[in-house]
């Protein structure tokens, strides 16, 4: 049985005059025990999707189930069995770490002791601050506490809406390590993120943009789907290089990627020599041009362009 099924879900906002389509005929399935990522920028429809699955919003069309329960009819069942961490920090800032955890445990008819095993590895990291008010914690620790609170009743499916947004790189990495451990315990996890590089940590990902799913695949296969040969280019003047490459007649796309620009050429046109010749004519210095493997962001941008 699938832990989550989403079948032709449509969600719109606004009045008749100005309709905003947040989710446009979305379908996918998440297997039991899978770590599934919804990858896309703000405004892609991630939060609407999460709210529909956690029974907080009603979709205009389509059906969805969580744990076999219908999100509309069986909402009470779903509320008993899922864990949810909303995008915005949603704990009581004026309650201490311990008080928050105890509160959420009791609300879900359980106690901290009962499921302590599940949160132990995460909780020990914030335990030294258990008397501290949640509002006084750093971003990384708040996020750990929120995760503990969402896990305390041993949910079968865990919904994490942008848990790493606004969090620094170190805390983000730690967070993903925690998710991998949770996955080992058999919990199905649906997680959304705007950071493309985090897709690599998931079993499968759905790339979402403007309410549409552009691709659903394993991270490895997503990059394999990249069409064309990708070149990494750099020179002494990166900004001029980018503008010049964009002007090159055989350029399909050129995007900056850290210390390189990723260049995709129109099929079978020019090749490496052509590019080098073009750049030399424009007197670029220290040119480096080599093959590179596309990453998820490359594929995402390609898909964005094609739709």
């Amino acid at each position: 049985m699938n832990a989550i099924t989403v079948d032709h879900i449509v969600k719109t906002y606004g009045s008749k005059k100005q309709v905003l389509t947040a989710l446009d005929d979305i379908s996918f399935e998440v297997k039991k025990g899978e770590l599934f990522g919804i990858i896309g920028p703000d405004g892609a429809g991630k939060t609407s999707l999460f709210r529909i699955l956690t029974t907080l919003l009603l979709a205009e069309g389509g059906t969805a189930t969580v744990d076999g329960y219908d999100v509309v009819k069986d909402y009470k069942q779903i509320r008993k069995s899922v864990g949810y961490m909303p995008g915005k920090f949603s704990l009581y800032q004026d309650l201490s770490v311990e008080e928050n955890l105890e509160f959420f445990a009791t609300i879900f008819n359980t106690s901290i002791d009962q499921n302590y095993d599940l949160i132990k590895d995460i909780y020990v990291q914030i335990e030294p601050f258990k008397k501290r008010r949640a509002g006084k914690l750093s971003g990384g620790m708040k996020q750990k506490l929120a995760l503990c609170c969402a896990l305390i009743h041993k949910p079968s499916v865990l919904f994490l809406d942008e848990p790493t947004t606004g969090v620094d790189a170190v805390s983000r990495k730690e967070f993903w390590d925690m998710l991998k451990d949770l996955k080992k315990q058999g919990i199905t996890i649906l997680v959304s993120t705007p950071y493309m590089d985090e897709a690599a940590m998931c079993d499968r990902v759905a790339l979402i943009q403007s309410g549409k799913i552009m691709s659903i695949e394993t991270p490895e296969n997503i990059v394999k789907e990249f069409e064309g040969e990708l070149w990494a280019v750099r020179s002494a003047d990166m900004y001029r290089l980018l503008n010049d490459l964009k002007q090159y007649k055989y350029t399909e796309s050129c995007n900056s990627f850290g210390e390189y620009h990723h260049l995709l050429l129109t099929k079978n046109q020019g090749g490496k020599e052509g590019v080098l010749k073009y750049l030399n004519e424009l007197s670029h210095k220290n040119i480096l041009l080599e093959h590179t493997a596309p990453n998820i962001e490359d594929r995402f941008m390609q898909l964005m362009k094609n739709t």
């Binding site: 029974t55 509320r79 949810y84 920090f89 949603s90 009581y92 969402a150």
Partner: peptide
Amino acid sequence: EINTMEVILVSPL
């Protein structure tokens, strides 16, 4: 306003 309602709603309370 502080979004805790979201979590409270998604609970058996």
